[in-house]
C-alpha cells in the first residue's frame, strides 16, 4: 500500500508544484493521474521514488517512509519500483540489451556491472523481458536505432526486469500514435492484472483513462481536485472531464 501524506514540493526557483497532496493507493490498483500540463503530475511521480526530493510530507510504502531513507536504503526501495518515462530515457548509445539489463543494476554485483558484465541468468531474464514486449530480435541493436514505440517498449522491458511491485509511468504514451498507445497501455494492463503490480500512471486522453484506470485522481495547480472510481470515470462525459481537466482535454480517438 502506498500512502502519500501532505506532500509538498517547492522548486528552487520558488515554483510550488505540489501543495499538500494526500492519497492512498491499494496494492494492485491501476491509478491514473490526470491534470493539465504543469499541474504537477510528473513532480508527483518523481517525488514518489525521490528522483526529486519532496519539500514536505511523507511517502509511506508498505510502512516504509521513503522520504526518510538514506541513500543505500533508498536504492533498495527504488529497485522494486519501476519507472516508465514519457521521453523513454534510454541510453541511446548502448545496445538494447544493456538498456534492459540496467533494470537489474540494483540487484547484481555492483562491481561487475561497472564493466557491463551481467551473469548469464540476468541476460536470460532481460531477453525474456524483451520477448514479452516483442523486441527480442532487436536485443543487440543500438537503442538509438529504434522507433519511438520500440523505445518505449524497451523502457517497459527495463521496468519489467526490475520485477517491480509498483510501476510509476509518467505519460508513457504521450509521444506515440494511437495504435502504439494502446499496445503500450496493454503491457501495463497485463502487468497489473497478471502480476498484480500496482500502477500509477499519468495520462492525457480521456478514452485511455476510461479504458484502463481503476481509479483516477485529478491534479490542478499542485492540488488534488478530483478523486473517482472506475465507475465514476466510465460515467463521465467529455464536458465533465473538461471541467476538471481544462480546455486541453481531448480524446485519443482510436
Amino acid at each position: 500500500m502506498l500512502r502519500v501524506e501532505h506532500l509538498t514540493k517547492v522548486y528552487e526557483n520558488g515554483t510550488v508544484a505540489l501543495k499538500d497532496v494526500s492519497f492512498t493507493v491499494e496494492d494492485g490498483e491501476f491509478l491514473v493521474i490526470i491534470g493539465l500540463s504543469g499541474s504537477g503530475k510528473s513532480t508527483l511521480l518523481r517525488c514518489i521514488n525521490r528522483i526529486i526530493e519532496p519539500t514536505e510530507g511523507r511517502i509511506l510504502w508498505n510502512d516504509i517512509d521513503i522520504t526518510a531513507l538514506n541513500e543505500a536504503e533508498l536504492r533498495r526501495v527504488r529497485r522494486e519500483i519501476g519507472f516508465v518515462f514519457q521521453e523513454f530515457n534510454l541510453v541511446e548509445r548502448l545496445p538494447v540489451l544493456l538498456n534492459v539489463l540496467a533494470g537489474r543494476l540494483g540487484y547484481v554485483n555492483p562491481w561487475w556491472s561497472l564493466f557491463y558484465y551481467f551473469p548469464k541468468e540476468e541476460q536470460e531474464r532481460a531477453l525474456v523481458a524483451l520477448e514479452t514486449v516483442g523486441l527480442r530480435e532487436k536485443a543487440y541493436n543500438r537503442a538509438s536505432d529504434l522507433s519511438g514505440g520500440q523505445k518505449q517498449r524497451v523502457g517497459i522491458a527495463r521496468a519489467l526486469v526490475q520485477e517491480p511491485k509498483m510501476l510509476l509511468a509518467d505519460e508513457p504514451v504521450a509521444s506515440l500514435d494511437p495504435v502504439l498507445a494502446h499496445s503500450i497501455m496493454g503491457y501495463l494492463e497485463r502487468l497489473n492484472q497478471e502480476r498484480g503490480v500496482t500502477i500509477l500512471c499519468s495520462l492525457h486522453y480521456l478514452d485511455l483513462v476510461q479504458r484502463y484506470a481503476t481509479r483516477v485522481i485529478g491534479l490542478r495547480d499542485g492540488r488534488i481536485v478530483y478523486e473517482g472510481t472506475r465507475e465514476d470515470i466510465r460515467r463521465m462525459t467529455d464536458e465533465e472531464f473538461k471541467q476538471i481537466y481544462g480546455e486541453e482535454a481531448q480524446r485519443l480517438g482510436a
Binding site: F83, F85, V91, E92, A102, Y107
Partner: peptide, 19 residues
Amino acid sequence: GPIEAIQSTGANRLQTIMF
C-alpha cells in the same frame, strides 16, 4: 533523462556514471 532512469532502477553512483 537517462540519469534519472538509471537511478530509478536502484543503481548506485558509480553504476549511474557508467551507464
